[in-house]
Design a binder for these strands. Structure first.
Lengths: 140, 140
DNA sequence: TCTTAAAGGATAATGATTATTATTTAATAA
DNA sequence: TTATTAAATAATAATCATTATCCTTTAAGA
């Protein structure tokens, strides 16, 4: 999902293409992904002060309903949003509360193969997400 | 972590062993694990109506700080608690919002082996949690 | 027991989210 | 291009979970 796709997706779903929706989507993208509601609202307040907070909440809700964004959760108490729909996992550092996407086709394949053999009783797998918890190492 | 251990853990951490703490811990265990704050408070209200809600919040916070409980997050908006400290993953059904623990030593080994070879740049792995999303199949 | 720091209880305050309702607007067709 | 209308937005009030405050009680150790 990128900015250009948004138009089409909204149209296909029968949702109106409004400036507010574009602005909210841009905000999530510009904030580098995984922003919290706070961050999104703050960003929009700065750049488009005439958009109502209630509208932002409603748009986020609409986007999640229609699969345009996903909600991500960490151990902390805030909701965060993710616009990348391509299959990926998350690197998460508790101390800094930082999240990064982690793409790894080999890993996906490994997991899929594994669960083709090893069936889980009474459960049909649709999707798998690995949360890799640790520390980011800053290189000086 | 089981009920019997709680005493020792509290004592070792220099935390006081209070009836309220025991009751909150029991509530989480009795609720079958992964209960939401709501469920915990409701359960305690029914069985011990003289415990303050604020106290329950404070105890949950204390338990998380000291690793006695962990917070679990789903895609939904509520906080849930997990007392099982043994390494495990989660089966999660979006529709019913149900979570089950999933133990799989082979899987743990597979993942560990995989990441021994495949290093992630600038990241030191401490822990991995697989969230397996899908549907529970009820058998009639 | 006595002492004291820690913990609990009650309630107010906070703050994020949701609901409400009037107004505006995007989309469609005439 | 304009008119129509359902959908979307804005503003604000209401809600509700969580946190803070402050006073009282209690667990733990001397």
């Amino acid at each position: 999902m990128n900015k250009a796709d948004l138009h089409n997706v909204l149209r296909n779903k029968g949702l109106k293409i409004t400036p507010q929706r574009i602005i909210v989507f841009d905000a999530v993208v510009n904030l580098g992904n995984h922003p919290s509601t706070d961050k999104i609202i703050e960003h929009i307040k700065n750049n488009h002060p005439n958009i109502s907070v209630a509208t932002v909440y409603k748009i986020l809700e609409t986007f999640v309903e229609h699969g345009i964004l996903k909600r991500v959760k960490t151990g902390k108490d805030v909701m965060r949003y993710d616009y990348e729909l391509e299959k990926h996992h998350h690197l998460y550092a508790k101390d800094s509360d930082r999240i990064e996407d982690y793409y790894d086709a080999d890993l996906n394949q490994l997991l899929e193969k594994y669960f083709e053999q090893k069936k889980i009783e009474n459960f049909k797998i649709e999707e798998m997400k690995l949360q890799i918890i640790g520390k980011f190492i800053e290189n000086k």
